[in-house]
Design a binder for these strands. Structure first.
Lengths: 140, 140
DNA sequence: TTATCCCCTAGAGTTAACTCTAGGTCAAGT
DNA sequence: ACTTGACCTAGAGTTAACTCTAGGGGATAA
């Protein structure tokens, strides 16, 4: 079966070899084999595992919790429920992040418009309403 | 003009007073006034500034860069272009994050399905194809 | 006036996730 | 035999963004 060196995997997944060794040290890669002299041999399934790890990281999951998941996988079918629950929870987390990002986007787009208008006018004063006298604090 | 204490602002924005003092120390709140004895008095405009700061943080912007923006705001109309460019860049950053989150979601949803099926079957083996013999590594 | 809060600063400590260094092994090429 | 380059470990260092502690001040309530 074909194997890959740590630097090949690093290049392929856009990670550093430091990061890969760190993940291994943290117990995220319990199935990576070694040569007699200790060099890691990554299989395709290890690369797939790393892709899932990156995906879970992207949901905001800390490495210690990802490690729990990896352990559950090694424990077999008795942990299927935990793993299912975990992915349902991750789905909710991603949905929440998407919602927050949408709100953030609205504010950012409003600011793009605000500054476009100010830039066209040559001054931010176009946005100042002077009903209650001059406001000396910047508006951001 | 009405002002707010640090703990009122903290409660209102769901931040700690430590965080607010930290932001102040880092130069993110140059317009917060003080009593003679040194107690901070937050105005509504300071709270608005904090909301923008939280928004920029949500785009992934580090505090040092947010500080640059705050400084530009104090410098007036000469920095309008920088500020506009910054928000355009932030918009692109948020779009990229949305894209990544969408891809992440697809993988997570696939896993939800994968584990739902396995759970119904009582074993993960339903997903194993045995064409090339038994695979002993867990699949994640 | 004494107790209780809330406020302050300076600076130390924490946490996560790397990132790097020192010192060493090993296989291949010359 | 020797050099080169990729690999290894243990453990120290880094960075961002807080988070907390110690020690102290001012205002209000009993």
């Amino acid at each position: 079966m074909k194997t890959f060196s740590i630097s090949e995997v690093a290049k392929q997944l856009n990670l550093t070899i430091y990061t890969l060794r760190y993940y291994d040290k943290e117990g995220l890669l319990p199935n990576v084999e070694r040569t007699i002299s200790g060099t890691r041999l990554f299989k395709k399934s290890d690369i797939d595992a790393l892709k899932i790890i990156e995906c879970l990281k992207a949901t905001g999951m800390p490495i210690k919790e990802i490690k729990n998941f990896i352990n559950w996988c090694s424990e077999g079918d008795t942990t299927l429920q935990q793993r299912y629950d975990m992915f349902i929870e991750r789905k909710a987390a991603v949905e929440a992040q998407m919602e927050e990002l949408k709100k953030t986007m609205e504010v950012i787009e409003h600011k793009c418009f605000y500054y476009k208008t100010a830039l066209d006018a040559g001054t931010e004063d176009v946005h100042k309403d002077n009903k209650m006298g001059r406001n000396f604090a910047p508006t951001y």
